[in-house]
Every structure is written in structure tokens, then in C-alpha cells.
Amino acid sequence: MSPTGSTLTREPQEVAGEPRPPGRDRSTRYSQRRRDAVTGYLFLTPWLIGLVAITLGPILASLYLAFTDYSLLKPPEWIGLANFQEMLSDRRLHKSLLVTFQYVLISVPLQLLMALGLAIVLNKGIRGLGFYRSVFYLPSLLAGSVSIAILWRQIFGQEGLVNDVLAKFGIEGQSWVAHPDFALGTLILLNGWTFGAPMVIFLAGLRQIPASYYEAAAVDGAGRWTTFVHITLPLLTPIIFFNLVLQVIGAFQSFTQAFVVSGGTGGPADSTLLYTLYLYDEGFGSFHMGYASAMAWLLLAIIAALTAINFLFAKRWVFYGDE
């Protein structure tokens, strides 16, 4: 912190802009800059400590561990690329990648379509918008909790709510969470249920579209659909893109729901073994911490690659008004 005394004596001189001998002025400004530098770093100290100790340090350590065999009990042993070679033949890893891609590629579009559709319906000057927005947003806040995962496990269980409803139509249900063909579907629905957060972002984006565009379209006699396709949608593409990137990154890291619904196993028959579940199992179930680190880097690479692909394709369909 700059000593208050010197601030008091020197600063007013500088800002008052009175003519000063050039040498003096430069030194005042120089010391002001130095004080700012010291202050800036003081403000930043907690974050810098965190950056080094629990972010950058662990990243480097994780990179190193990815090339070792390590179980916490013995010191890490350098094994070169063996972890990555093992990945090539690890059937469970392949299964978990497949499951995760299915999960992300189905649940994110589902979630975004629902979010966009509802945002458009709600945006049309509806009374009680705030209330509706809250109602639809609530699941996004709750869905990450263990409580909801427990509820889901029951809803889609043998004696669950879904089967109760089906029974009314004379359909005999089954335990959806215990069937390898359907268990992942229940998790996809759960992620779809969290459409409220992207919906709120869409609503904010829709408000940014200038009314004059719609007025011009109306003057030209454009109908609702034409207006939507030629005005709303193009102007909303940056927001759609933003939501897409965000939700893809988020979905790749889903853990709690799959863990709780499958009782920590990723079952039945590994059908809900999301990548993070397998990573947890390797790292903290079997304490294969070297292998888990290698898996973490593969995850990072996949997320980075998908984000990059998203950005590359964005040029084709995302429209920025100032272009």
C-alpha cells in the first residue's frame, strides 16, 4: 500500500496540473507509477499465491504425473508414454469416451433447443415474465445436487413415477436406471432439465435486438416466421454460440448425477460411465494417480479441441452485427 502521507502530499500536485519543473514532474510520475505497481501486486497477492500453488503448480505436476506410475504410497516412477499406450487398449476408457460423447452430443442440443424455444415464447411482451423465468430457472440451480440425483434414481426406478404414469396407459414399465439401453437417457433428460440457465442468457440476448429491425421488417410486410429466420435468429447466433461452448464444456465435466444415479459404478454395464466417473475411479478408487493424470490431460485436450472446432465453425454461422 502506498503510504497515505506521501499520497496526500504529492498527488494533488500532480493532478492539479500546475506547471512544475520537468525533472520534478517526471520523478513524481515515476514514483506514482511505482507505487501503483506495488499496490497492484499487493491487491493481487492472494490470487498470485493461488495461481502458483493450486493452479499452475498442480498443472505442471499433473503433466509430470501423466508420464509416471504413481499410487501416493511410493514416489512416482517415470514410465514415459506407457500410460498413453495403455489408454489405446483400455476398453473401459473407450466405453467411457463413447458414453460421454453420446451424453454431450444429445443433451446439449436438447437443452439449448428447449432454452431457445422457451426464451422466444417468453420474450414476446408477456405478463409475469419474471415469475416464469424463475420457475424455469429453478431446475438449473437444483439439478447439480445429490438430492435431485436421488430423486431421479427413484423417478426412473422400477417403482418410480415414470412407471406409475405408464401404468395408467396400460404400459408395463421397467427400471430405466437399471437398463443399459436407457440409463444414460435418464441422465440426458436430467441435463436437458437444466435448460433454464441458457434460457436466461437467450432472454438477455433477445432484448439486445433493436426494435427498429422489427419495425423495418413489419413495414416490409415480413411475417412472423420470416422475421424470426431473417432477424431474430441471425442476431442471436453469437448468444447461441456462447451457450453452446459453455454447455459443451460443462457437460463434459458432469459427474454428480451419473455417480449418484449409478451408485458410484457407472453401471449398469458401464452404460453411464461418464469420463469423469472413470477418472475418479482410477484416481481415487484404485489410486492409479499417474493414469488418472494422463486421463485428465486427454480430457483437457478433448475439451480444447471441441472448443477450437466450435470457434472454427463459428465463422460459418455466427453473425456479428458489425461485420
Binding site: 500453488a53 493450486i54 498442480p58 463434459f252 483437457l300
Partner: peptide
Amino acid sequence: GTIMLPIHVLIVPQYVL
């Protein structure tokens, strides 16, 4: 850059630390 960093890359070394 750290905002989008998956916790999984950090969790093993953090656990060790």
C-alpha cells in the same frame, strides 16, 4: 485461461499436495 480449466486436471496433484 483458468476459468475454463477442468478441475480434473488439478485434482490429483491438489490431492497429493
